[in-house]
Amino acid sequence: MTPAIVCRNLTKQFGAFRAVDAISFDVQPGEIFGFLGANGAGKTTAMRMLCGLSYPTSGEATVAGYDVYREQEKIKRKIGYMSQKFSLYENLTVRENITFFGGIYGLSDKVLKEKREAMIGTLGLSNEAGKLVGSLPLGWKQKLAFSVAVLHDPAIVFLDEPTGGVDPITRRQFWDLIYAAADRGITVFVTTHYMDEAEYCDRISIMVDGRIEALDAPRLLKERYHAADMQDVFYQLARKAVRSDN
């Protein structure tokens, strides 16, 4: 099987500052890949290159089989993206948001209509479909935003801290959606500050100062670092960081 993401010595330099320093990894189709790191480690910069939003300085990478230098537009058609900061338009209704993003992703009217009504049913939002997204509780917004990000059945969905500030029950319902998407074969690339969520990933990488310091299944990382939980693994690695954000 061709990997969903192949990354070899991917580097991004801003002037004298090497934000991402020769990172290499593969992500398999249907895998839930946790992309962790301290603030300022280079996660966002790396993610922007993989989403086709920024050119690498050097190194190679393909996403869904497309090259990050030459085929950025093709990459954008094959991925979904959601972050805590930007997800949906607050001043559009639930139904309008789904229609808008479905249109952007190039779904036909017929397919879009079917998917939209199915999604509203699955999420239990039938009574809220005509309400403004801004009026929904945060947890519902986040679940809706995720569903919109995978509306077009992308090969890979990128999630940037999707569950920040969400209550413990909704956070788990959100992970149910992630598991279900991965079960359908969608590759999930996710960042989080909740270390218990790192445990839900098939494999995780931990970035420190632009480099990937560790990459493995959570259980193997805990064994290697003699740690009781991922929080401890993360702490052991990230405390050595010289950089912080900005």
């Binding site: 790191g37 301290a38 603030n39 801290e161 920040g164 500030g165 500050h193 270390m195 929080q231 993360f234 702490y235 990230a238 405390r239 960081a241 912080s244």
Partner: peptide
Amino acid sequence: TTGVDVVSRK
């Protein structure tokens, strides 16, 4: 400590 990594939180 919202949105802050484990090390800075500590």
